[in-house]
Design a protein around this nucleic acid. Sequence first.
DNA 1: ACGCATTACTTGACACGACAACCAATGCCT
DNA 2: AGGCATTGGTTGTCGTGTCAAGTAATGCGT
Lengths: 161, 161
Amino acid sequence: MTRWLDDREMAAWVRLAAVMELLPGVLDQQLRRDSDVTHFEYWVLAMLSEAPDRTLRMTALAARTSGTLPRLSHVVKRLEDRGLVERFPCPQDRRATNARLTDAGWALVQQAAPGHLEAVRGSVIDALTPEQQEQLRGIADAILERVDPDGHMSANYARES
Amino acid sequence: MTRWLDDREMAAWVRLAAVMELLPGVLDQQLRRDSDVTHFEYWVLAMLSEAPDRTLRMTALAARTSGTLPRLSHVVKRLEDRGLVERFPCPQDRRATNARLTDAGWALVQQAAPGHLEAVRGSVIDALTPEQQEQLRGIADAILERVDPDGHMSANYARES
DNA sequence: ACGCATTACTTGACACGACAACCAATGCCT
DNA sequence: AGGCATTGGTTGTCGTGTCAAGTAATGCGT
């Protein structure tokens, strides 16, 4: 027999679904308008900008951005065509490809970061109390634990304990 | 001067971003595999199945699914081609189009609902304590308040107060 | 009652992601 | 050392979403 959702469960789920449907579009639009990159492209550039030598292997980049490898391949190629990233085979393992942020890519991240940060603050962070921010961390961790138990797809952060 | 995110804010944001990136895919896959519909298509059918006479105007459907009108137009057309929905001009206002769930569509929702429910439980609801579910509701409401202040895009639920 | 703005949607072109097939380098096993 | 599975990544095709433009009915102002 199926256990239906009670009111509390339904309320939580419906709102989460609405957030998942709306928030990505809002953030995407801001970045597109102001800096001509998608939200995902921005994450790619941002992760590279924080990496040693501004360089990461494709697989590492995929994990840090929660993206699949084919997706990353396409995205990085487009970024390369635009001169924001360069690719070169890894010397240690010639199967692997390294992606490095160019100066132009670095400049774009620097220019885009403040506006994006404001958007994230405006639609998420500043809408929440400090308590809610901590709650959100716990909730998201619990969900990620179910969705990606091994953390393969979200090596971006250190999960609690 | 830009206010950067502190540790607490960053932790919350990074995890929310990962959830937004991963969760839709997980739910999509389950529905595709088991019932050959996308998550968005499922919401469309589900909203219709709860509406009086299983019928809604396109605009109302868009609001309830947090989708844009062009998107809905495409999706409903595809659903119509598959015989799950039928469209007919609204008698009262001939600009408007009504979408009604067919018997086949109704059957699909009935068949798909239990599996989808299990997926939602498995990846979200059962991962959270009752307390966290209430927290999530509050957090999502706060975000939606910023992202869609007038509630145009999320007429699906009654927001608090 | 005429015209213009608005509402409600549809359509077409383009961009992006997913999936599957593919290729190349590596490393292990014997 | 030869063979085979595995790892790491790219490519092509297809489905789907978005955006901009277009159409048609409505309603409001004068």
